[in-house]
Amino acid sequence: MTTTLTQTSADATAAFADRMMAATLGWMDVMAIHLGSQLGWYAALEERSGSTAEELATRTRTDPRYAREWLEQQAAGGILVVEDERADAASRRFSLAPGVGEVLLDRTSLSYLEPLARMAAAAAEQLPALLHAYREGGGVSWEQLGIHAREAQADMNRPWFEQLPRVFGGVERIHTVLRRPGARIADIGAGAGWSAISLAQSYPQLQVVGFDIDEASVEAARVNAAEAGVSDRVVFLLADAALLAEHGPFDGVFAFECLHDMPHPVEVLAAAKAAVAEGGVVVVMDEAAADRFAPDASDLERLLYGFSLFVCLPDGMSHRPSAATGTVMRPDTLREYARAAGWTDIDILVPEFGLWRFYEIV
């Protein structure tokens, strides 16, 4: 019996040691991807396949010695392929491995995941502040997380937001409201504006008012709307969503991937109730968290907890008082918020849409 227990303990130790090694390698890959993205190396390799370190460095105005080390690290991990591994270091030519370009460079693809590296780098930069918040309370705001976090979230959400018209086209109640002549909706937590822009482009008579409290995001959204040619029907306000009713009424109020970040979700849902017109809709798109907590969870659940630890919960707690929801907002939590705001219940419109789920507040 003792021998069996000892073997079991040794196996468990070895397994977790392997996991730690794999996680460390994964972190190194993610940080190296961030380096390559920020330095323009992936884009340069897609533009001209089969580059040496010297050629890559020249085209991107970077240091050739660092370029060589990065190229070799990427090839060692299978992210790049090398034409002749036996050639001397200066002569080796590197190219993107199949599939890499779409994931790291194609901003229109639903497989575009380069922003994950940017988000991880932004969180890593704030680790001292995160440690302080974990010890003393308080938080780390989106403003503190900075441009990488802000733009990473916008860029990763954009291709999914461009699918919103297709999703709502399959939900007759929502589709009917959006195509109503002269319909006016609110997009709260609008960020860089891609959700509002996508809906306006697909519903030519729709007017959208976007709300956000992050000034840099509002400025970016206004530029994006102008470039998309919809700024005559889409406006963005630097305003708290809790003040929504002051700008209503609206035929629809939408909260895309933001409610769990808000320090006062009940107040926001109450404002939506006050602002929505008779026969209108209130729709929340938030993370597709499992119905209840369970250990040994799915990869999605683990990803949501990771975001919560480093981004969403610290941001929510950077404002006091705060509901401190975190990324893992389960359906029962949203139902509790909705009822506290004066609503009756929630209906699940679309159970899973990438990382997200659509609810109607009723």
Rank of each mutant, 00 (worst) to 15 (best):
T176R: 10
G146H: 07
V167T: 08
D187N: 09
E162V: 07
A117D: 05
D155S: 14
L113E: 14
P165L: 05
L104D: 05
R93V: 02
E136I: 07
A192S: 14
G99S: 11
R135H: 12
E162T: 13
L164F: 11
T176P: 00
G146N: 06
A117E: 06
V208C: 01
S111C: 10
Q126C: 12
Q163E: 13
L127D: 10
L96G: 04
G137P: 09
E114F: 12
Y203D: 00
L110I: 14
Q207E: 15
V171E: 03
A192Q: 09
R179S: 06
L178M: 03
P98D: 09
A97R: 04
A117P: 13
Q201P: 04
P159I: 06
R173H: 08
G101Q: 12
L96V: 09
G182P: 01
G139W: 03
G138F: 08
D187E: 14
Y134R: 13
I188K: 02
F161E: 14
T108W: 12
D106G: 08
A190K: 02
A129I: 04
R158V: 05
V177T: 06
R179Y: 07
A190Y: 02
E162H: 13
G169S: 05
A123S: 11
L206A: 06
G182L: 03
Y203Q: 00
R93A: 04
G169I: 07
G189T: 10
P181I: 03
P98V: 09
P115T: 07
L145W: 08
A190G: 11
L206R: 00
R107H: 14
R93P: 05
A124R: 10
D106E: 08
P159N: 10
V140D: 00
V167C: 09
L178C: 06
G189I: 10
S111P: 10
W194T: 15
S109H: 12
F168M: 02
A122H: 02
G99K: 03
R158S: 04
E102S: 14
